[in-house]
């Protein structure tokens, strides 16, 4: 599948945003972070900023962005529509929580209302991430996407990148504790395993279709294209016919393991050995590498995906 940068940026950014939202909300829920207006503003601003930026960029690949509002209407059947609806809904508890926690005054421990809002924000974030994943997982036409693990991964990578961002901010404000390092490292480890599992599943998944049964003529022998239906690549081939060479895939996968998980893990763990400066630098390093890593992961998620339609255009199977 053709990797559209707007979509890749959207999923990575809003993913991190919702992840961050989950963590700050979680922290509030368990009184794991001292109430602070400045900290609150920064964290929530970043979280909601990432989410919003992502959502906006996603409209960039629409042919008719001015009609984007129509996308909220079909939540009954469409995961894309559901994602939109959930994204909007989630703003409500998130926004209220941000205001209340940052300006609400009161002691360190959260109010009952704040706890309710936190739970709602967390749920909203996770469900939104799930919807995003389901947009892809629901497509029978692409075996690389049509897997139960796909939405799980979207959640995991979102929370993971969010956690790294959160850790960085904690360090920035000098309020990080060892616990956070462990939690983040754990999430990264989970992410690594999840991605590993995904790739083993994909590599094992049998092709959905072949040139033989796409045309229904396979029983007569090997089906080969003789004359193309058109001289140049049409929309279908430009959108669905994107391919990367096997060897590149292997290299890119390693890059993902390294950038998205390996280096971030090191960066985060630096917080245990070194002092606060090292921790700050380490978590920043982790954030940057993870961001790039997940971006590559997302690019590969598209580039590796084979669409059955390519079997009409010469792919032996997909």
């Amino acid at each position: 599948m053709h990797p559209a940068y707007s979509v890749i940026f959207f999923t990575t950014a809003s993913g991190a945003g919702y992840g961050l939202l989950c963590l700050i909300a979680g922290a509030i829920l368990f009184d794991a972070v001292p109430r602070s207006t400045s900290f609150g503003l920064v964290v929530f601003a970043l979280a909601l900023g990432l989410v919003t930026a992502g959502l906006l960029s996603s409209t960039a690949h629409l042919g008719r962005p001015e009609r984007a509002w129509r996308a909220f209407s079909q939540w009954r059947t469409s995961w894309l529509s559901r994602e939109g609806v959930m994204a909007v809904i989630t703003y409500v508890p998130a926004g209220l929580l941000a205001l209340s926690w940052s300006f609400g005054g009161g002691g360190d421990s959260a109010t009952a209302l704040e706890r309710v809002l936190a739970v709602l924000a967390i749920l909203g974030s996770l469900v939104t991430l799930y919807c995003t994943g389901m947009i892809y997982a629901s497509l029978k036409t692409i075996r690389h996407w049509h897997l139960g693990i796909v939405p799980i991964n979207y959640i995991i990578f979102g929370v993971m990148t969010g956690a790294i961002a959160f850790l960085f901010l904690l360090n920035l404000f000098g309020v990080a504790g060892e616990g956070y390092v462990w939690v983040t490292s754990l999430l990264i480890a989970v992410g690594l395993v999840a991605k590993f599992l995904y790739w083993t599943k994909v590599d094992a998944a049998p092709p959905v279709s072949t040139a033989g049964n796409a045309t229904g003529l396979g029983h007569l022998g090997k089906v080969r294209p003789f004359e193309a239906a058109h001289a140049r690549r049409n929309f279908v081939m430009r959108e669905m016919g994107y391919t990367v060479a096997r060897k590149h895939v292997a290299r890119l996968r390693n890059i993902v393991f390294l950038l998205a998980f390996g280096l971030p893990l090191l960066g985060v763990l630096l917080g245990l050995v070194g002092g606060t400066i090292a921790a700050l630098f380490g978590s920043f390093f982790a954030l940057v590498t993870a961001a790039v890593g997940i971006f590559v992961e997302r690019w590969l998620f598209f580039a590796e995906a084979e669409h059955v339609v390519t079997t009409y255009y010469g792919a032996e199977a997909a």
């Binding site: 629409l62 008719r64 962005p65 984007a68 029978k140 036409t141 692409i142 279709s209 669905m240």
Partner: peptide, 11 residues
């Protein structure tokens, strides 16, 4: 809106 998702869903 030209989101192209339907084209992805068509085999």
């Amino acid at each position: 809106i030209g989101c192209k998702l339907c084209s992805w869903a068509c085999p």
